[in-house]
Design a protein around this nucleic acid. Structure first.
Lengths: 365, 365
DNA sequence: TTGTAGGCGTTATCAC
DNA sequence: GTGATAACGCCTACAA
């Protein structure tokens, strides 16, 4: 039994103050400086029609340079900012897309989110982050709800939703655009960003072998994710290629999160003949393995190598090999959003620059 | 020079397929099953006026039970979902609030986000997650932009924005409701959720002392966060109370993220007389310290204790002390959102249940 | 290249 | 209790 973490005889005072005014009460104080400017205000200031202002704002063609300048000047001087709500209501687009993700790993979730958000911001879109549970019976309803209420223009699906047939069918039936990140299968009709999970995992395993390890543990991910099995296969591929026998006892299940990484780390180190290296299928689990290793006091420096793997970043290999540098140059979320929003040509061009993915693991110190 | 991480002679094929259709092209395929239901459809189905449907939906008073039932039945059978855009345009509220946060620590960011999002969902609101850079010269403009475009109903500020006077003044001038999480100072006019950072850090330090440590390292956070200094002070308080001399060399700066935790961990362990315990000001940094410790092969189990600290969860102490259990029972983000959206009475009642905050650290195995 | 009319789906106002 | 009617701010026609 551990000692109490904190002295219970001296409880910390929890501070919490709040005014008695809620959102509604606080905001009703006044209209600020007379309310924000509308397109009508701009049109008046610029001496043109509302429609012309709209044209400039939406970068439509057939607007003279003079007019454009006048409008832009008026927009700037009035500090005009178009209302998303009005645009969504009147137009076909809402300028909103959603990112649907399961949430076992904070590193992964934040990383993907940031990439999607940045691309969205650059294109005048907004991202709605929507964590969900893969097994939820209500998932379809929840997503449909979001689509209707927010008038979504499109969605980005990460595993395991990439394999959710019912969800994908629903999106297709609604003619809703979506892009998948790391799907199990690449189909010609749906855009997706991914790598060959199996080959990447094999490459990572080869790296550990190249460090001199021959007993390499593997922390697997949630079996409901298709990527999980592929990475395990890649691990086995690499072992086979160099003639190392596969030992099922060196493979521990995990769930992509920190806690399961800790558990798996302990389990592997309890093995009578423990591994000298551990390859975890996510960065969070790799961090967990490290925590477990530390707590067990794994002694000799370099004795236990820990590697992590997350498919959130693209990394480029720079030649010549002797000075190989692994540098994240792009980001799955960002690429996915670009695929969803536009510009296939540019995307293609950029993707050609990348050969390889994996992410610096926590252990790659 | 490390060996190349991956075999550059055998690059991994990057897979990326996308259809040539963009969002607009894909969505123009058809109108689905004739478009979603509107209030008008519901009113027709229920045999009442549009306004009456609106009344039911908004839970206004003065609606007869019979009418309410009819409307609800129609809503259900038609699968009606109100449009956020239309509600925002016509009404005073947009049902959207934003969470403004700096983003050094994925664990913190995800944790707060999840709490806010859950409360929002329960209340029919939506959260817009908005990471920002505290030092950004354009911050005010960015936030103002968000407020206007999304017609925000309110905001939640996390450190270091809680101390951003210009930002707060702007919000006040606009009569916009906002709540602060872990602000440096609690003021009577702004709702906030926080703990006594100094006392909590002192308690954590006392815990490490109770384990028998007398050389305790401290990994500090970003100095632009007010909480940083307070936690350091708490650490010093605890040392002083038991007569341990403060040694500035055992304090390493960090930035709340994993990388700086790794760096700080190395720095502390290089000390000629290294600490036997390290207290990091964030969970991410604690994970980094663990990684560093592992890589240095800190040998004896239990020799280096590592503690983390994040103020995202509330924990309750359950008596009697001998069976003390630390159990996260609530969440800063969730509480903040509740403060922002409504129900001060309930909040107060619930807060009284909590005495203490800290979060299980990565090391608390 | 520019302007006019109408409507998007909901809430606010004011009658009934 | 309930129901017309006019906004809300913008975009999509269509016309000039």
């Amino acid at each position: 039994m551990r000692p109490p973490l904190l002295d219970s005889t001296n409880p910390l005072p929890l501070q919490s103050r709040y005014a008695s005014r809620t959102v509604a009460a606080m905001n009703s104080g006044g209209a600020g400086s007379g309310g924000r400017a509308t397109i009508e205000d701009v049109s008046r200031a610029a001496g043109v029609s509302i429609k012309t202002v709209s044209r400039v704002l939406n970068q439509e063609r057939y607007v003279s340079g003079t007019t454009r300048d006048k409008v832009n000047a008026a927009v700037a001087s009035l500090g005009f900012r178009p209302s998303f709500a009005a645009r969504a209501l009147a137009g076909k687009r809402s300028f909103q897309i959603a990112l649907i993700y399961d949430n076992p790993s904070p590193y992964y979730a934040q990383n993907i989110q940031n990439g999607v958000r940045e691309t969205c911001a650059a294109r005048g879109y907004r991202m709605i982050a929507q964590p969900a549970h893969a097994g939820s019976a209500d998932l379809i309803n929840e997503v449909a709800n979001l689509i209707d209420q927010a008038q979504l223009d499109g969605l980005i699906l990460t595993p395991p939703f990439t394999e959710h047939a019912v969800l994908r069918d629903m999106l297709t039936a609604r003619h809703l655009a979506y892009v998948t990140v790391s799907p199990a299968e690449v189909t010609p009709v749906v855009s997706s960003v991914t790598i060959d999970q199996r080959a990447a995992a094999a490459a990572m395993t080869r790296y550990l072998i190249s460090l001199g390890h021959c007993r390499i543990g593997f922390v697997s991910g949630d079996p409901r994710f298709e990527t999980t099995e592929r990475r395990l296969q890649g691990y086995r591929d690499a072992l086979r290629d160099v003639g190392i026998a596969y030992d099922a006892e060196l493979v521990e299940p995990g769930e992509y999160d920190l806690t399961s990484g800790i558990r798996a780390g302990f389990a592997l180190m309890q093995h009578p003949n423990p591994p000298t290296a551990i390859f975890a299928s996510s960065d969070d689990m790799a961090a967990g393995v490290l925590a477990a290793a530390h707590s067990r006091g794994v002694a000799v420096p370099g004795k236990l190598s820990v590697a992590g793997f997350d498919d959130t970043d693209l990394a480029r290999v720079v030649w010549p090999p002797l000075t190989t540098v692994r540098q994240p140059v792009h980001q799955f979320g960002a690429v996915a959003a670009e695929l969803l929003l536009a510009l296939p040509d540019k995307i293609e061009q950029r993707l050609l620059e990348f050969e390889l993915i994996t992410r610096e693991s926590v252990a790659a110190l």
